[in-house]
Design a protein around this nucleic acid. Structure first.
Length: 118
DNA sequence: GCAATGACGCAGC
DNA sequence: AGCTGCGCCATTG
């Protein structure tokens, strides 16, 4: 195996895999970057998940607002287009978000069992 | 091809 | 429910 540089993933770039996983997050539930990264095949690529969502091709139907960091904290407001927007979107799906921008991972963390990869 | 970056994760303070 | 520093991996310039 070459260096961990441009490693391919079955023809699908990591980004696409990430988008797929995120789009599979059930409504009213949230997933962490680490979770997505793990499902994508690289538990260490949490940053890549963030990078992928940063582009946020909403045109593809990527619910970036359902993705939170490992603490259950929402991404920086300016990151997805508007402070409080992500919070509102989650609240609209039934996810309680704190004024600090925190969600109860204990209750809303996505198990991923609904996805069942491979 | 190399260097820099990034919506993170974890360990340490 | 802090803050800082370092690491990890893929994308972009």
């Amino acid at each position: 195996m070459k260096l961990n540089g441009q490693r391919r993933r079955k023809g699908l770039n990591f980004f696409e895999t990430v988008y797929t996983m995120v789009s599979k997050i059930p409504r009213g539930r949230v997933a962490t970057y680490g979770q997505i990264a793990r499902l994508a095949g690289n538990p260490r690529a949490s940053r890549i998940v963030g990078c992928a969502l940063h582009m946020c091709p909403a045109s593809g139907g990527i619910p970036c607002h359902r993705v939170v960091n490992r603490e259950g904290r929402l991404a920086p407001a300016d990151a997805f287009g508007g402070a409080g927007m992500q919070k509102s979107l989650l609240a609209a799906e039934g996810v309680s978000v704190n004024a600090d921008g925190y969600v109860d991972l204990e209750k809303y963390c996505w198990d991923g069992r609904e996805h069942v990869p491979e």
